[in-house]
């Protein structure tokens, strides 16, 4: 049986040459957390099942910086690496794969050009294409947002997840915009709704404040993975300890 995955997420500000990991609160305020490849290696040694790098800079010269971050990371980190933020075309995806990424995650570009999902999946395999959805609670539904939460699309998150699956996505990275950075726990209703409607793995994201939140999302929804940033970045919890806790509570994890 496949293990539930614990995925630390490194939000990277690539506006400086080496890049740095930062963490936003509700998609806005920013705190500094460390150097990307150093944090990634620490999480790898602590037992992370996968690492996600998200480029949250708005500058245009960042592609080279991200390539550098992935290359440096893949020298010492031997688990799957996912890269996202600013991937707009198959060429962007190729440069990520050629520098050592195993998967790319696309959000804005996928909504603006859904065919990109098919292109990446056809060329690199379903497993290589993660579609990220930033969902905002509305009255009775969830709305997809793009451009890091700055623009709303009117698109229903569940319907979009189903389309992404049909087009060849290998995972759905589902972030609750309402919970992101709050430490209040994952949005169970959102995660449950999406994970029960698609047959591909859903990675729950947004709101994780303690190991109990990860346990809750695995117990109450069909999420296959949980993504968290803050609880690991500031040394509050170690990944190994979180996994031990999950195992004690009957969750199948890799130790």
């Amino acid at each position: 049986m496949l293990a539930k995955r614990i995925i630390p997420c490194l939000d990277c500000d690539l506006g400086i040459p080496s890049g740095r990991v930062v963490k936003g609160i509700e998609f806005k305020q920013i705190r500094y957390a460390g150097i990307p490849w150093e944090l990634a290696e620490k999480y790898y040694l602590d037992g992370a099942d996968e690492i996600v790098f998200l480029d949250i800079t708005a500058s245009s010269d960042r592609r080279e910086t991200m390539v550098n971050v992935i290359k440096k990371t893949s020298k010492n980190v031997f688990i799957p690496l996912t890269v996202g933020g600013g991937i707009k075309s198959i060429e962007d995806a190729r440069s990520a794969f050629n520098s050592g990424a195993d998967k790319v995650t696309i959000n804005t570009a996928a909504i603006e050009n859904p065919e990109l999902i098919n292109q990446i999946a056809d060329r690199y395999g379903n497993q290589a294409c993660v579609v990220a959805i930033d969902a905002k609670r509305r009255d009775g539904w969830f709305e997809c947002s793009i451009y890091g939460g700055r623009k709303f699309t009117g698109i229903d998150a569940i319907e979009w997840a189903k389309e992404a699956e049909e087009r060849g996505a290998g995972d759905i990275l589902l972030t609750s915009m309402d919970r992101d950075g709050t430490y209040d726990g994952f949005d169970i209703e959102l995660t449950k709704a999406v994970s029960e409607r698609v047959r591909i793995p859903v990675i729950a994201s947004g709101g994780c404040g303690n190991p109990g939140h990860i346990l809750e999302v695995f117990q109450k929804t069909k999420a296959q993975a949980a993504l968290a940033a803050s609880i690991f970045h500031y040394g509050k919890y170690k990944i190994g300890d979180v996994k031990n806790y999950l195992k004690e509570h009957g969750i199948h994890v890799r130790l």
């Binding site: 049986m1 496949l2 995955r5 395999g125 290998g170 047959r199 793995p201």
Partner: peptide, 10 residues
């Protein structure tokens, strides 16, 4: 089962 198999297995 879901195909591809993608993830950590024993």
């Amino acid at each position: 089962v879901l195909v591809p198999q993608m993830g950590w297995n024993e």
